[in-house]
Amino acid sequence: METIDLEQHFDAKLAKNEMIEPKDWMPDNYRKHLIRQISQHAHSEIVGMLPEGNWITRAPSLRAKIVLLAKVQDEGGHGLYLYTAAETLQISREELLDQLHTGKAKYSSIFNYQTLTWADIGAVGWLVDGAAIMNQVMLQRTSYGPYARAMVRICKEESFHQRQGYEIMCHLAFGTPAQKEMAQDAMNRWWYPTLMMFGPKDANSSNSANAIKWKIKRESNDELRQRFVNQTVAQAEYLGIKIPDENLKWNETKKGYDFSDPDWAEFNNIIHGHGPCNKERIGARVKAHENGKWVREAAAAFGKKQNAIDVAA
């Protein structure tokens, strides 16, 4: 078939809401867009282990510690599902990791903020994972099969993450005045970075048009952000914690809340590597990768030996 026929066939499949699978023909830009988005998503899961890992040794109880360990292990798993989904698009794991380590590929700006207190672990689970779920629920219907399947699995696991975060916030919000203050402080620091997670406003988002056209995304950044705010307000009210936005107000006409934009200059700054922890995060990843080199080499040598024994037998 000519490229033009192939492209028509591809468009027709999307129009019928059929999924695209790895062996199907796809436009080069669709492939590139997916590699960028899925790998960025995978890197976010892996780098996202760092701010939470920071609190494993300092969790306030054994229960909190095992929960946090399980959560961080899940994030690692999510990264692995996503890496293998990206690998179906003709890019190797080695290349993907290389792009992360050299800064060629990005990860979610949210993980460049510090987790200063235990309340931050609550806020990350409640707000950050809450925002991620909003995005990931939509991505379960993304047009690329392997990505959609990874998302279904991830969504099943994420709801534990959000609930454990809210539980931490409940303990603090209904605890001593100092604990409540700690919960409020975490909210104050995480609210706007969480709103940034949905990406730039639709009018300024260079990748959005294609993502919607190709049904990689089914809803826009602004729509998801609005839904997140609508759902979160009542949760914050229950905790008696104030969302740090004077303009937050119910708008009966749009049946949703009006709210302030995050500081987009700060967002761009972090995206370009100047956030509070960018260097530290990548530094930690590179160090882990380098320190693991001898393990991979040993495993490869052992695997080679095992395979030779199998062939002989």
């Binding site: 899940d74 699995r153 052992f302």
Partner: peptide
Amino acid sequence: HCGSLHAFDKEMALQNARDLYTRR
């Protein structure tokens, strides 16, 4: 079929699969 993973040998493939795909 539930997904893919990387491993260096059969035993590692099974162990990784257990850790990655059957945590619950």
